[in-house]
Amino acid sequence: MTRFLPFLLFAVLLIGTSCNRQVQRIETDTTVDLSGRWNDTDARLTAAELVTEIMGQPWLERHTSRTGKRPVVIVGMVDNKSHEHIEAEVFTKELEKAFVKSGRVRLVQGGQKREQIRRERADQQNNASQSTMKQWGLEVGADYMLQGSINSIMDAYKRKKVIYYQIDMTLANIETNEIVWIGDKKIKKFVKN
């Protein structure tokens, strides 16, 4: 038995040292660039820029002074025409949050979530009490739709590459198709492997 003890100890040591993965919590605003691809920092910078632009532009004042009401916005589609998968919801959610927090813009639900709300309303017609069930045909119609596109250009030579991202967001009047606001964020990266 004593003969196998060193081997046993060695095996235990080997197993122990092979599982040395380290995980640490870092601040969400810390910039960590690993591969050079689109990452959380890019999404955060885009969100910050677009929120500043959309809340500071005159479309908001113009609408309020013309109609006397707060504009109602719905988030439309974002077309990703870049070379990577970029989830636009990361920054469109920031825009939605800014709308709701400011209290100057009203936001209506769209997409699958709106379908879920409608299904729940339909369910209420059968199961909720008369005093609490919600009525059909009282949804708030949006005045504007937020749409966007993501484009990228990559230039690579040997171990170096330059990646350029351009995120464009537009706010269009649903009745007139008029674009009342355009915002963009441009990001350029130089990656050396």
Partner: peptide
């Protein structure tokens, strides 16, 4: 139409990357 609202539609292309 409902699915397109608030969604990201991927029309990605393959970039030339030697590595």
């Amino acid at each position: 139409h409902a699915a397109s609202l608030g969604a990201t539609v991927d029309n990605t292309y393959q970039a030339y990357d030697p590595i």
